[in-house]
Design a protein around this nucleic acid. Structure first.
Length: 498
DNA sequence: TGAAATGTTGGGGCG
DNA sequence: ACGCCCCAACATTTC
């Protein structure tokens, strides 16, 4: 049996050529990769490894859109590593079993990886580090996909920050993050003869087949390190200069759309920092936009810090007084929301953009999330789960923190009474209706001044636009004015609670 | 990284 | 000329 061959093998002598397993996780790139660079610097023979850990994450496992992205990102990484000389090895199962077994099988003297900050991942990694050390294998972890490690940004009392702005000030005050590392020029491959064959990516079934719903994703995205760099370059070459104004208008290409690339580590925040700062120095007019953009990278660090210090963040209210909040299990409302059939055009446009492309513009995410938790009073965890399944940038820390932010239960959260008006938000941020027309085409012919509130149009206007409310497009499933009042009343019930 | 309710001010129409 | 009212525009408070 292959497995026993892998298990029973005499240790190599210490004078032998160094040999290392480099375990890739959400850092699917070869440049600015400290673990890969450390192995290459020793001139080690390398087994680059990726493990599909479906069980370990439990009910927080990869969503369908993320699986699609992962497939293509791994394909890109595998191509790059093969070209450098050390093909990627794929395995599926519990990492705490696979990593030590493969390390033994290739007779590695070291295993390198970059840290991750999800509670389940930390648990797995801790266990593996101990197992490897017991085996006499060096296990070394490097800083993960943040500007700073979660324990580096501390208050004067030494604790983690609970408010973003002081967090960000403190993080910036730590100075420039480390300079990104170059990609290795070439890699030596560890011999594979004692290994079970690498799993084949296509056998993992990460991409949908029957039906193939990924057409919209393919049209919208280029996963992989090259795609990530091209996306950042396109953003820094133009839109970043007007980022502060343009970032709120979902019909415009005013945002970076870097989030899935960052989530999978196809580009590192340190690279983003470096190249964005360079762009700001080269063009003084872009400087402000650069800082507004980097501040968003700061939110990403802040959210990961929150998760690191509060492992229950994806499940439990950060502010425990929300435990008493009278949520509703409005199944029909939830379904209408997921399908983009709430009768509020901005919300429906967002939910359909999400379904089609695996992405939603952030301004619309806030409005759509507010609608679910405040207009429908559906628990934020339902929304969190839907986003986790459908977003290509689904990220446990960002998703949990942002949903709690919207619900009002989070750290530095929006106050509960901050309730988005889906009509006003549409009129403000999609003033010409272009975003709604793109994603809710059945409303395309409505005049702009009515497109965010079709139910206010008179019969003649509706007929002229071929809109039949209740048939071609739903009437609002709730009256926002009333829903707002009900939500405020509900909040009164928990206001004094601890 | 809200919105609605309430308060204040000032211009213009009008008797 | 003056007081009165209306209301838009803006500011402040409240949720």
């Amino acid at each position: 049996m292959q497995q026993s061959a892998e298990t029973h093998r005499a240790p190599r002598a210490a004078k032998d050529v160094p040999r290392a397993v480099v375990w890739f996780r959400n850092d699917l790139r070869v440049s600015d990769h400290a673990a890969l660079a450390a192995a290459a610097a020793r001139d080690a023979e390398i087994l680059p490894l990726y493990i599909l850990e479906d069980e370990a994450a439990g009910d927080l496992a990869l969503g369908a859109a993320s699986r699609w992205w992962l497939h293509h990102s791994l394909q890109a990484l595998a191509g790059r590593l093969a070209a450098l000389g050390a093909p990627l090895h794929l395995a599926c199962g519990p990492a705490e079993e696979i990593v030590p077994r493969l390390a033994r099988a290739v007779e590695a003297d070291a295993v390198y990886w970059q840290r991750r900050y999800e509670p389940w991942g930390i648990a797995v990694d801790t266990q593996i580090k101990a197992a490897l050390k017991a085996d006499g294998v060096a296990a070394e972890s490097f800083p993960g996909g943040l500007l700073r490690e979660p324990w580096e940004v501390k208050t004067k009392q030494g604790g983690p920050y609970g408010v973003f702005t002081p967090f960000w000030k403190a993080e910036v005050a730590l100075g420039e993050p480390d300079e990104p590392l170059p990609a290795p020029k070439a890699l030596k491959s560890a011999p594979r003869d004692a290994l079970t064959e690498s799993a084949r990516l296509k056998d993992w079934g990460l991409t949908p087949t029957a039906p193939d719903w990924a057409g919209g994703l393919r049209a919208a995205w280029t996963p992989g390190e090259q795609g990530a760099r091209a996306r950042l370059k396109a953003f820094l070459d133009g839109p970043v200069a007007r980022y502060q104004e343009a970032r709120n208008r979902p019909a415009e290409g005013g945002v970076s759309r870097l989030s899935p690339h960052l989530h999978f580590g196809e580009i590192s925040p340190r690279q983003v920092w470096r190249w964005a700062r360079d762009a700001g120095r080269a063009d003084a007019a872009a400087e402000q936009g650069v800082w507004a953009f980097l501040r968003e990278i700061g939110w990403r660090d802040f959210n990961h810090n929150l998760l690191f210090h509060n492992p229950e963040l994806p499940r439990e209210n950060y502010q425990s007084k929300f435990n008493a909040f009278p949520w509703r299990e409005d199944e029909a409302g939830y379904r209408a929301w997921t399908r983009g059939l709430t009768g509020y055009p901005l919300i429906d446009a967002g939910m359909r953009e999400l379904w089609e492309t695996g992405y939603m513009h952030n301004r619309v995410r806030m409005a759509a999330a507010s609608f679910l938790v405040k207009d429908l009073l559906v628990p934020w965890r339902r929304g969190e789960a839907w986003f986790r399944d459908t977003l290509v940038d689904a990220d446990l820390a960002n998703n949990a923190a942002n949903w709690q932010w919207t619900a009002g239960s989070g750290a530095d959260a929006a106050p509960y009474f901050r309730i988005f008006n889906p009509v006003t938000q549409g009129q403000k941020f999609d003033p010409d209706g272009a975003y709604v027309r793109r994603w809710v085409p059945e409303l395309k012919a409505l005049p702009t001044k009515l497109i965010h509130a079709p139910w206010t149009a008179d019969a003649r206007t509706l007929a002229a636009a071929k809109v039949e409310l209740g048939r071609t497009y739903p009437r609002p499933i709730v009256d926002h004015g009333r829903a707002r009042q009900i939500a405020l009343d509900a909040y009164q019930e928990i206001k004094g609670a601890a």
